[in-house]
Design a protein around this nucleic acid. Structure first.
Lengths: 214, 214
DNA sequence: TTGTCGCATTTGTGATCACATACACACATG
DNA sequence: CATGTGTGTATGTGATCACAAATGCGACAA
């Protein structure tokens, strides 16, 4: 009796949660955008109850904020908060990269190179959402090798909080090529150079967000 | 027109959330303990709806886990996960302490000393919950000075995940005095010694949790 | 033109209900 | 005594509803 049905029937609130989370993390929603429970329910074809649970969960993760009257919106981050979140990214991602390094074999590095070369396409298309998604995929591919799910979850929570803000950054910024520090990350991985890797990751994380602070 | 009413009428799900969260963080619930929505609702005198929201929120923060069938329980952490969470504590708390240092004046240090001396009482009473609460209060008093709410929130999320596990540690462990590293933290604060502070905080965080891994 | 008041509408909240499923315990069977 | 099976109860899920509060818009007055 091996899986009579594929138990892949995700609950309704999970579909809403995942869908909304992905959209926020990838910068598909602008900062300050208002959302309503009935609107979300209608959009995902569920009633208010699952929409409420999904929204509550995203509020708990800092992906959404809730006014005192319960209205939902994506947060507009202050410069101080952006600086904090960037510092958290630096702390956690450097640690994740360091833990992944001993396990990063050539196959993984090649996969990361493929992802990185894909960034050129989305950049030439002025596709901010694609840029953010590909960039995060590059990082996540490495961090998955760290075998540290709790750290990765924390890291993704920070990404989530920065999602709408990153959208407005990469919308302004007219990039012409993939981030320079990605090449340094790949080189350090190939060389097994841990200090170099830590520096490259820290630089990559810090550089993009430095120009976020208006 | 200055606050006609104190707007302190917290919503029902917030009362449940806060109450449950405090209990979990302070180690008042053992690892693996099962909870039910109807039980929570009855306990906090609300219906299932607010209880569900509070539970979902705590699941999102890693304070509770949910089985595939939706049953709630406090998590029983693996050694690998404990190690990860301890590493996160070390990363974040060292940073918070470092940011708090320039702002830590004598009044704050005296307050921390008072809290720390209170640990002797709860230790002599074999009061594990009191020990955890007082210990966290010691750390939080310092970190609040860092003026870094996002980092502090992340830090408390880690504390929350470790709550039930810390209970079983301090239940086993028969302490006779306050943590030795707290004195080092206080000394480094008085001396304005940043490297010493970083080391003391890292040691304090790591030491307790090293013996958690069975 | 601008500011203020009032009302209609939108919105979140919490309770309740019907339903499907998972769990636990007793019992039968080897 | 161990193991599988069936049944009743407990439990989570999602929809719907009544209610209160907030919002926003339009009218009206200064």
């Amino acid at each position: 009796m091996q899986n009579p049905r594929p138990i892949e029937t995700a609950s309704a609130h999970d579909r809403v949660y995942r869908g909304l989370r992905t959209r926020i993390m990838h910068g598909q929603i602008a900062p300050g955008q208002a959302l309503t429970l009935r609107g979300l329910g209608k959009e995902f074809e569920v009633s208010m109850t699952p929409a409420r649970e999904a929204a509550q969960r995203l509020v708990a993760e800092g992906a959404l904020q809730m006014s005192t009257s319960g209205r939902l919106s994506t947060p507009e981050l202050s410069n101080e908060r952006i600086e904090e979140l960037a510092a958290l990214r630096a702390l956690i991602e450097v640690e994740l990269a360091s833990r992944a390094l001993p396990r990063a074999h050539m196959q993984l590095i090649e996969r990361m190179q493929n992802i990185n070369s894909g960034i050129a396409d989305v950049v030439s298309n002025r596709d901010a959402v694609g840029y953010i998604r590909t960039n995060l995929e590059f990082h996540r591919t490495l961090y998955l090798r760290a075998q540290a799910p709790a750290m990765l979850a924390m890291c993704e929570t920070v990404w989530l909080q920065l999602g709408p803000t990153m959208r407005s950054l990469y919308g302004r910024l007219r990039r012409t090529e993939a981030p320079q520090y990605h090449r340094l990350i790949l080189a350090a991985l190939k060389a097994g150079d841990e200090p170099g890797l830590r520096l490259a990751v820290r630089s990559d994380v810090t550089q993009g967000l430095r120009m976020l602070t208006t």
